[in-house]
Design a protein around this nucleic acid. Structure first.
Lengths: 229, 229
DNA sequence: GCGACCGGACTGCAATAGCAGATTGCAGAC
DNA sequence: GTCTGCAATCTGCTATTGCAGTCCGGTCGC
């Protein structure tokens, strides 16, 4: 075997995304940020044309979006962007509370020492951000922390579901962090508490704390108002 | 409008399922019952041939199964049936506990009077089954009850996810009902308790009771043993 | 004028063909 | 015997074409 030249690292498979995957992300983002408003009719063919690809990957992306509730297609008639009002967003929020809780529980059950070290590192890295007010950086660090926890469950179904759910309140989260100046610190403390439960291998506590954290965060951004909780 | 001859009922949209949908169910069932064992390599082409359809719907079915964690595909290399040992089944069980709980919570929030009446009807219909020991009928009534609750959340994401999860422990549930003679009565009482919470529009209680019910049911069938709960 | 009808222009769905990575095995060089 | 490189043959992925429902607008019969 060749001894590999320094600085040459194996290619990540994530660099090359399929057209279907890229179409999916593009569409999801467009729906989330409102450039594809609810009720908008979209056809596989025309979409394919505007994206410069064939209809098949577009179709694949649409089916996936349909499974995630962002699009609804009436057979042989057309597919349109789903309308999700505050009610729908609140529903998705409740689902996210539940799934993030389960993720935390699983993480507490099967986290290795190095996983916990990595989480600690992420938590520490968030600390300096509390001083400034770079909301975008905070949000990203936030998502990285949650994403890491979900990742170490090793459950692809859970990960995929949560990724889809996150799209729903991506903007709500920014709002939450901005809403009150003490929100970032509060979130940080809650993250620390969750991590300590994971560290102690305490699934029940980790789940409860995660649920409380996500719920409170959603409430802070007003997403759960539709259920006047 | 023509007055329709007696016994002639409008066609249900479910009669005409797309090939992709049929392929999906076929494959899912085959995986669940073990005729497609874990690790088995499956190729779009050969599968299409054996099913007598083209590769496109097969591919669609596979992508969906992948999203549900029953299949894993390595890009440009192949796709194979996922191995899910007891651990994986237990994980899915935990997720199901969470989602069924959320479904019950949502149901309690937005159930109409007629929905509750329908649930009461289902519950009453299950009662005589407690006398006999037709396990299959009991299981079906069981699923109908749960399915109705999920249905009246009106959340397609939730419904679809739960349908996928149910496939995982379909057989485990039969085992649970058979395991102990008192299990069906116990399940019935728990169902009644859940329904009463929904009826009183008490989301928290409905969620808690549903979670406890599903958890206990999963424990009875040994699915959660992998986490020595 | 009014309603049934019919043809074109959509739609999602499926079939077919071909592309480019990935694997395997064999032939040849050393 | 071991390694290298090529080629056949897999794979998933994408493009193209065509099919069959569905909708819509004009037209014909009354």
């Amino acid at each position: 075997m060749l001894d590999s030249p320094a600085g040459l690292v194996p290619l990540a498979a994530e660099d090359i995304l399929s057209l279907a995957e890229r179409a999916y992300r593009r569409l999801r983002d467009a729906i989330v940020d409102g450039s594809l408003p609810g009720g908008e009719r979209i056809s596989e063919r025309s979409l394919a044309q505007t994206l410069g690809i064939s209809a098949q990957p577009v179709r694949e992306a649409l089916r996936r979006l349909e499974a995630e509730g962002m699009v609804v297609t009436l057979p042989r008639r057309g597919t349109l962007v789903a309308e999700f009002g505050p009610r729908r967003l609140a529903e998705m929020g409740l689902i996210r509370i539940a799934l993030e809780g389960t993720a935390a529980s699983l993480a507490a059950r099967q986290a290795g020492a190095e996983d916990i070290a990595a989480l600690l590192g992420l938590l520490r890295a968030m600390r300096p951000l509390l001083q400034g007010n770079d909301i975008a950086a905070l949000a990203e660090a936030n998502e990285r922390f949650h994403g890491r926890i979900e990742g170490l469950t090793g459950n692809s179904f859970l990960q995929r579901s949560l990724e889809a759910l996150r799209a729903y309140d991506h903007f709500g989260r920014l709002r939450a962090l901005r809403s009150t100046p003490q929100e970032p610190r509060r979130a940080w403390r809650e993250h620390a508490a969750i991590l300590s439960a994971i560290r102690r291998r305490d699934p029940e506590r980790a789940e409860a704390r995660m649920r409380a954290h996500v719920r409170r965060s959603l409430e802070a951004s007003g997403i759960l108002d539709a259920f006047n909780t």
